[in-house]
């Protein structure tokens, strides 16, 4: 079970809801992924179009824990404001703190992320900060009371996979709260590697929504995350420099 604050989840896949070809594909992808946590963003509405479709109406939101993000914020103050707006919906108390410090790399601003997270913990939110893979920052985020740490594998939407497995391993080893690898996952094998490293979960969006067949990719990610987790729990064999025969040496008939 994945435990975040007071909540428990069977699925270790957290799925984003951005950039699907249409709401029907999105719904099907969400269904087959068997995710229990959906992320989304907060934006101004078009007040003159009351009938514009909204993804929330297509999904049975009762089935999911909603994890709004603070995307769009570049300061702690903006992130706290977006978090409070999300909570004012009465639908959620979890928040993905996302404070972007650089528009080209979309890497998070570590200082503003820490400040925003600290304030939101005090305000009673269940706080999951999206952070770089800085080991000491992850430690500080845990110390101020964050309920999970979400280091990026590589830049958002880049699909580059895990570029620094060593740092992720260090973060996972030191953490007493769940570590969810967020951002940069491109393929099912990336997600499986994150889980084999000991991550408690994986958050992804573009890898599924941008795939040629998002529904099939959602299934692939679900299976990869399950396989990676099982592999981690099973404990891998140590690597050796040379071969070791799998078949017995006794009873060989020679000549």
């Amino acid at each position: 079970m994945l435990k975040i604050g007071p909540y428990s989840f069977k699925s270790r896949l957290l799925l984003g809801t951005g950039k699907y070809p249409n709401f029907d594909v999105q719904k099907e992808a969400v269904d087959v992924s068997e995710t229990e946590i959906l992320t989304f963003a907060v934006r101004r509405m078009n007040i003159y179009e009351p009938n514009q479709p909204n993804f929330l109406e297509k999904l049975n939101v009762e089935k999911y824990k909603l994890l709004p993000n603070t995307a769009g914020a570049s300061t702690a103050k903006e992130a706290v404001r977006i978090a409070k707006l999300a909570k004012a919906s009465g639908l959620c108390d979890m928040i993905k703190v996302e404070v972007i410090g650089c528009q080209k790399t979309l890497l998070p601003d570590p200082i503003e992320t820490l400040k925003a997270s600290e304030e939101l913990v005090k305000e009673g939110f269940i706080v999951l900060p999206y952070t770089s893979d800085d080991v000491l920052l992850a430690k500080r985020l845990e110390e101020i009371g964050c309920h999970a740490i979400m280091p990026g594998a590589s830049p958002i939407g880049s699909g580059q996979g895990i570029v620094n497995p060593l740092n992720l391993r260090f973060i996972i080893e030191q953490s007493h709260v769940p570590v969810i690898v967020d951002a940069g996952i491109g393929t099912p094998s990336d997600a499986a590697i994150a889980m084999e490293l000991g991550a408690d979960g994986v958050l992804l969006n573009t890898a599924v929504s941008g795939a040629k067949d998002p529904v099939k990719m959602a299934k692939a990610m679900k299976l990869a995350i399950e396989a990676g987790r099982l592999g981690y729990e099973a404990g891998r064999i140590p690597k050796k420099a040379y071969a070791t025969a799998s078949s017995p040496m006794e009873g060989l008939s020679i000549g």
């Binding site: 984003g16 950039k19 699907y20 963003a41 907060v42 934006r43 101004r44 509405m45 995307a71 999300a86």
Partner: peptide, 26 residues
Amino acid sequence: LEKSKHSETILSNGDRVEMVHFVGGG
């Protein structure tokens, strides 16, 4: 504003209102 305060909150001329909702995102 919490949802429960919507009906008791009076609007005045010149007020600045933000109306936001949830959209897809990661």
